[in-house]
């Protein structure tokens, strides 16, 4: 372990200066005390662009310590380019062990997915959030949406869902599906597929959400009621597939569709790359087990 003031370290431990960490830490505590409420915070410029995980990175930097084991995924996969880049960043600036193993990680940073393996009490899940305001698509003004949250006036959201039902016969939102926290604050779960929404409810882990560009932090403590909005006659439902994972045969995980040629041939594979690998190691096999994609993973750094 390199002491934080060792001369060879050009930046502070975990990149952020201590004052910035304190400011973010205070925001996290307020976010936990008011579940689902968006706390404005003095987001800083990070060495990666806005929109590429700066909120999640700032949250991680504010909480991470050398005893942590860090996992970072994008679209459920550990080997997507941006996840690799962020994982490298923390390995470098925070002296942490990194892992692809969901069960081993103490901090899991994610863009667009929650791992399939149920989270545990010793884990903190950090979501990268592009747009923290669930109502932004319906009302562009922050002054208006902040007032709606202040007085819990969420009629606009229900009208929009109702319009979707009357236009398409169902609620059209497939990702970033809005949720109510403890029946008080309407919250964006970040652009996770609605498939993952049920995992937010009564979670064992602390869930933190960071939006760097929009400068907001919010949180869902463990064992908090998270309800996906719906109507009695149009109940919330998650995505399902007729196919199972081509590599591991999983029938209940979120699947990515991979085109194999220009003629419409395709395969479906788990979006959660570690979940899939773990199942294959345990001897599960799908209809295309042994396919090139199976071997495409590089060894962990």
């Amino acid at each position: 372990m390199t002491p934080s003031n060792a001369p060879e370290r050009y930046y502070n431990y975990a990149y952020l200066d201590e004052q910035t960490k304190r400011m973010i830490r205070r925001s996290i505590l307020k976010a936990l005390a008011i579940p689902g409420y968006q706390v404005p915070f003095g987001s800083r410029e990070m060495p990666v662009p806005y929109g590429w995980g700066t909120g999640g990175i700032q949250l991680t930097a504010a909480i991470i310590g050398p005893e942590d084991v860090y996992k970072c995924i994008d679209q459920g996969a550990d080997d997507t380019t941006n996840a690799v880049s962020i994982r490298r960043f923390f390995a470098k600036v925070a002296d942490v062990e990194t892992t692809e193993d969901t069960g081993q990680a103490t901090i899991i940073q994610s863009r667009h997915r929650i791992p399939e393996k149920p989270l545990k009490a010793n884990q903190v899940m950090i979501f990268q959030v592009p747009q923290p305001e669930p109502l932004r698509g319906l009302e562009p003004r922050e002054t208006e949406t902040r007032a709606m949250h202040a007085y819990a006036e969420y009629g606009l959201q229900y009208v929009s869902l109702y319009e979707s039902v009357s236009a398409y016969g169902r609620i059209a939102t497939g990702a970033g599906y809005p949720v109510m926290i403890e029946e008080r604050y309407l919250m964006s779960p970040s652009p996770i597929p609605k498939f993952d929404n049920p995992k937010l409810n009564d979670s064992e882990a602390v869930l933190l959400f960071g939006a760097g560009r929009e400068k907001r932090i919010y949180a869902v403590p463990p064992h908090t009621t998270v309800r996906s909005l719906d109507f009695d006659d149009y109940p919330f439902e998650v995505q399902t597939w007729e196919q199972s994972c081509a590599l591991c045969g999983s029938e209940d995980s979120y699947l990515d569709e991979v085109d194999l040629d220009d003629a419409g041939q395709k395969m479906f594979v788990c979006s959660d790359s570690h979940h899939c690998a773990e199942r294959r190691e345990a001897g599960h096999a799908g209809p295309m087990a042994g396919h090139a994609l199976d071997q495409s993973k590089e060894p962990a750094p």
Binding site: S4, N5, L32, A62, I63, G65, V206, P221
Partner: peptide, 16 residues
């Protein structure tokens, strides 16, 4: 740096 991080994680868990 180290101690405030360790304290914060405990406090964060206590508030959560």
């Amino acid at each position: 740096v180290r101690e405030s991080q360790a304290v914060f994680r405990k406090v964060m868990d206590a508030v959560a």
